[in-house]
Write a protein that binds this DNA or RNA. Structure first.
Lengths: 257, 257
DNA sequence: ATCCCCTGTTTCATTATTTGAACCACCGGT
DNA sequence: ACCGGTGGTTCAAATAATGAAACAGGGGAT
């Protein structure tokens, strides 16, 4: 693994932690030597990606990340396109609705509206959903190229619950079924008691960039509700995709020919 | 310079560019070999910090930055605290008002409301303001420790206009005057025709974290206006600081003793 | 169609950077 | 005073980064 990835791993560590961490703790969590961790941290701090509190000596995420995040959002306003749709779905269904964006091999939760019901599904912000064990993952794979699906199949199949697909064949079947159905279904494949339906969001060129999903306690799930909510999320995702599609969200860096 | 900083420099390059860049162009701009640039870019892409468009082969800022930016904003909601104050000041003065945050050695513009007047000052988002040649910089230095001011004095004094302070002594005098006055004044020290007044925002522990500034065309500036607007920005910054101050925006990572 | 120039990509010997054990100084609790 | 923990520093050894060179492919101009 390259030095850069090690440094970025430290940032991820700080993000997951949610509160400042000390040098020793970071080194321990990352499996690096103290000296190594420190050198990387200082270099990140010099660039504003993290910052060290002078008093507590703790390291936390830095201001450069906000700057860059905003810059990215300016050129790829996925959030602005998705948020109204998520809110509308939450309103219609009364369940927890969330959106994810594909990022470095998994789907990261970028926005969620929680159900108002007492028994509801709660999603942490930034939580990473595996492609092989969630409704969002199935939907994303179903919208991806065969080559991408195969590359995911070659990875490990971590089993979270008894219903998590554990081999390439099972996953491929789910993907095929999702493609025919138009939306994906997860029956407690990631966490016991949580069922979801999801559909992919497509960006410029038709490539999937993320998903929208409705998550509900398994106790409220019936075949009719799955079908109704599934159709809702499919249509909503299609509408969002239509807005992103075509209008090249990423400007070409070559002159148009 | 470490490998990590080189990689992060590439990200900064992409941010400044504003649109996707090709490999050769990136290598040229950064002064790296094509092979080196490519290796760094691939590693960044693997972590989601940048992404490569499959078709055009161009590189652009990636989704991880949005994720991380949001995470940082959650724990340090500077924007939420500053935006209402900036809007209010813009309303009161009719001039362009903007806020900056300290990031890696300079002040980066994080929010701005433009004046409604025809002759107005315009600020690019993310623009970096040097500490030694802007009202925001003076205000930030005036709120900083002597050690920090001295470290800035040891840097190069790039002269942007004839009124840019060019040596340590001149800058120190400005900082001293700013401390006594309570707000800073820049008379076209960064760009001809633009004058500004500014005051520092202080965070937990009283340390400066950024600034608020009012920027106006030099043609509209009179001593009375400078004084009036200066007092406004001073008071407004103090109010924002009061909200951030004390309520430890960064949680301690040690147990409270 | 041919040439030319500019892409992106890969390789590999050279080089410079990263690594981590050992060490120091410091703090708080026992 | 001791101990266990912290953050920080050093330097020879090991490792990873580097970049010239060569390759493949595409587009434009002649």
């Amino acid at each position: 693994m390259g030095t850069v990835s090690k440094a970025l791993g430290l940032i991820e560590l700080l993000r997951e932690s949610g509160h400042p961490l000390g040098l020793s703790e970071i080194a321990r969590l990352a499996g690096f030597d103290k000296a190594t961790a420190r050198r990387l941290l200082l270099e990140l701090a010099a660039n504003g990606y993290i910052e060290q509190d002078e008093d507590s000596r703790g390291y936390a995420l830095g201001p450069a990340l906000q700057m860059l995040g905003r810059a990215r959002e300016n050129r790829f306003p996925l959030n602005r396109a998705i948020q109204p749709a998520v809110r509308a779905l939450a309103e219609q269904t009364g369940e927890t609705v969330h959106a994810t964006e594909y990022c470095a091999g998994s789907l990261a939760s970028i926005f969620a509206v929680e159900s108002g019901k007492a028994n509801r599904v709660i999603l942490e912000h930034g939580q990473k959903l595996p492609l092989h064990a969630t409704a969002s993952g199935y939907a994303f794979l179903a919208a991806s190229t065969e080559a991408f699906v195969e590359s995911v199949c070659r990875r490990e199949f971590e089993a979270f619950t008894p219903t998590t697909p554990t081999d390439s064949k099972a996953l491929m079947d789910i993907v095929t079924a999702t493609r025919e159905r138009g939306y994906s279904i997860s029956n407690q494949s990631m966490e016991e008691g949580v069922s979801s339906v999801a559909a992919a969001i497509r960006g410029a060129g038709g490539k999937p960039v993320g998903t929208m999903a409705i998550a509900m306690p398994a106790s409220r799930v019936t075949p009719e509700i799955v079908r109704a909510h599934g159709e809702l999320v499919r249509k909503s995702a299609a509408q969002v995709s239509a807005r992103l599609f075509g209008k090249s969200t990423v400007q070409p860096f070559r002159k148009a020919s």
